[in-house]
């Protein structure tokens, strides 16, 4: 399922809303999560899962082609942990 298919499904379920509003709603949700992660905040959606930002230390890596050492800067990585309810649903419980 892609984002546009998600929007279409929601529009079908909510005939009182314009498709463009459904699109804005979906975009708002994912934009809010992105903004929170960018600010280093956590997003907790009980039953679904939680998004958080994990810090990666700076390290010395290697260019795999040449074998040369390169410094890799410290960075933030998004991390998602599946919620208990969804995990159980995925396993047919």
């Amino acid at each position: 399922m892609t984002k546009s298919e998600l929007i279409q499904r929601l529009a079908d379920r909510n005939p009182h809303l314009y498709v463009r509003d459904v699109e804005r709603i979906v975009n708002t949700i994912f934009d809010e999560i992105t903004d929170a992660l960018t600010a280093g905040d956590r997003v907790e959606l009980r039953g679904f899962g939680a998004f958080s930002a994990r810090q990666r230390e700076a390290r010395v890596g290697r260019n795999p082609r040449t074998g040369e050492s390169v410094t890799v800067n410290a960075k933030q990585m998004p991390f998602f942990k599946c919620g208990k309810e969804l995990r159980e649903r995925l396993n047919g419980k």
């Binding site: 709603i25 708002t28 280093g40 905040d41 907790e44 009980r46 930002a53």
Partner: peptide
């Protein structure tokens, strides 16, 4: 980093502001 936790309520608020739904 502000160390906040965003929940469903924050997402609903954002939609209220953005789209004007109840």
């Amino acid at each position: 980093m502000t160390g906040r936790t965003i929940t469903r309520a924050d997402l609903s608020d954002a939609i209220c502001h953005e789209v004007g739904l109840s």
